[in-house]
């Protein structure tokens, strides 16, 4: 994914009704770009056959 600029990040925040103080935007952009790049780079052979889940303990409870 290409890096977003602070200006692009500001526009996206405004579209969500969120504040976009110019002083915040460079750091917000760094944070967004870091997470996007790191998550995009992750891969695993089982990824597409693995269903997402958030709750596991019911398996032990059963």
């Amino acid at each position: 994914m290409p890096d977003l600029t602070p200006e692009e990040v500001g526009s996206m925040l405004k579209s969500l009704g969120l504040p976009a103080d110019p002083a915040d935007l460079p750091e917000v952009a760094h944070r967004v770009n870091a997470v996007n790049e790191a998550l995009s780079a992750l891969d695993h052979p089982d990824l597409d056959t693995t269903e997402p889940a958030a709750v596991f303990w019911l398996q032990e409870e059963a």
Binding site: V9, M12, L13, L16, L18, P19, A20, A23, D24, E27, V28, R31, V32, V35, N36, L39, S40, L42, H44, D46, L47, T50, E51, P52, A53, A54
Partner: peptide, 27 residues
């Protein structure tokens, strides 16, 4: 300001990457 910037950045996480993170959570 640090909390605000962290939450604003997280507000922009693409849905497909959140989905990917949840799949990796299972792995």
């Amino acid at each position: 300001f640090a909390t605000r910037r962290r939450l604003l950045a997280a507000s922009l996480m693409p849905a497909h990457l959140y989905q990917k993170a949840q799949r990796f959570r299972v792995i």
